[in-house]
């Protein structure tokens, strides 16, 4: 394994449990983590982030703006057109995955996840 650089990851999830787990796992792996509590807040954090995050991890089911909405909104902003977005999902529903894919998601992380798998997923999209 090549050592990870201090990349910045934005995690968007309305579950504080999940947010704590993501923060712990990612910070433990040497990432810089910023967080948003739902799609709308995540979008706000994304736009105000200096420096901008290198990847986004988002939940699907969230109040105010869900994951699909967030992905579409992020892809609608020119400077974030290429940022990798990973979707956190427990859903085995292929339709949901197809929808996330169509919205512009880069890949999935299936909940519950292990730290290794999470870091592997981030490494996969932030070479």
């Amino acid at each position: 394994m090549v050592e990870t650089q201090a990349l910045r990851i934005l995690t968007v999830d309305d579950s504080r449990t999940m947010q704590s787990m993501l923060r712990k796992a990612l910070e433990g792996a040497g990432y810089d983590v910023i967080q948003g509590g739902d799609g709308l807040e995540g979008l706000g954090v994304l736009q105000n982030a200096m420096p901008p995050p290198n990847a986004i991890i988002t939940d699907i089911n969230m109040p105010r703006m869900d994951g699909f909405g967030l992905i579409e909104a992020v892809r609608g902003i020119d400077r974030f057109k290429r940022v990798p977005i990973l979707v956190l999902t427990t859903e085995s529903d292929p339709e949901k995955k197809a929808r996330a894919r169509a919205a512009g998601a880069t890949g999935w992380i299936v909940k519950p996840f292990s730290t290794d798998s999470l870091v592997a997923a981030i490494r996969r999209v932030t070479a």
Binding site: K81, R82, P84, I85, A105, T106, R124, V125, A127
Partner: peptide
Amino acid sequence: ARGDDARNLLKS
């Protein structure tokens, strides 16, 4: 357009 890159694939 989905945020992936050939670079990522090569790196993997």
